[in-house]
């Protein structure tokens, strides 16, 4: 839809401030739905929420991994031009990993989960989904959630939640997940627990 090299934020400082604030809110209130604060076009298969996250968090000091569908010239140019991002094909070296669709647990096994002294060294997984308004619901608890929080996601494969449950057991190690729908996003930090999955 956009043949020119995709651009960054129209107002870099202000837009980044707003989008970070919604990421901060998402991470501190897991499974809460955050609208996108700036309208951005899709960049090939990178959806607007994922490109918003990239523009907000990625720079020349954060190594990025892209899945096969995102690993095309348009998306790579977007990351290089707007974020000066070093790209890697080594999952364990990635600070952030972007997935065009939900990966399988096997796909996720190679990413950095942090280590006992530096659990923050883990890779943050940004997974594109179809929708955060409908789909199968799960009920979640944990820090940031007052009692419990329901989350509907369309676009996760059936092995995602079992994987996420395993991820939770290695706390404080583990991967944090941000789900990126075309029009909104939500976060699932490693502390979030599954109360029940339907």
């Amino acid at each position: 839809m956009n043949s020119l090299p995709a651009t960054g934020f129209p107002n870099p400082s202000e837009d980044a401030a707003h989008s970070f604030r919604s990421l901060l809110t998402a991470m501190s209130h897991p499974a809460s739905i955050q609208p996108l604060t700036t309208n951005l076009p899709s960049v090939a298969k990178l959806n607007p929420a994922a490109s918003l996250i990239a523009l907000t968090l990625v720079d020349h000091e954060s190594t990025v991994w892209l899945d096969d569908d995102l690993d095309d010239e348009t998306v790579k140019q977007f990351f290089k031009f707007n974020c000066s991002a070093p790209l890697t094909k080594q999952p364990n070296q990635a600070m952030l990993a972007f997935f065009s669709h939900c990966p399988s647990p096997q796909d996720l096994s190679g990413f950095n989960k942090g280590n006992a002294t530096y659990p923050d060294a883990s890779t943050t997984l940004i997974i594109q989904v179809k929708s955060l308004n409908h789909g199968n619901a799960v009920t979640l608890t944990g820090p940031g959630i007052q009692t419990e929080q329901a989350l509907k996601v369309d676009g996760l494969n059936k092995n995602f939640w079992p994987w996420f449950k395993t991820n939770q057991t290695i706390f404080p190690l583990g991967n944090d997940v941000i789900l990126a729908a075309p029009d909104c996003l939500t976060a699932l930090p490693r502390t979030t627990k599954i109360a029940e999955a339907n």
Partner: peptide, 11 residues
């Protein structure tokens, strides 16, 4: 900002 998100994820 990246450090803040990590901090929230590992209270």
């Amino acid at each position: 900002r990246r450090a803040l998100l990590k901090a929230i994820a590992i209270p």
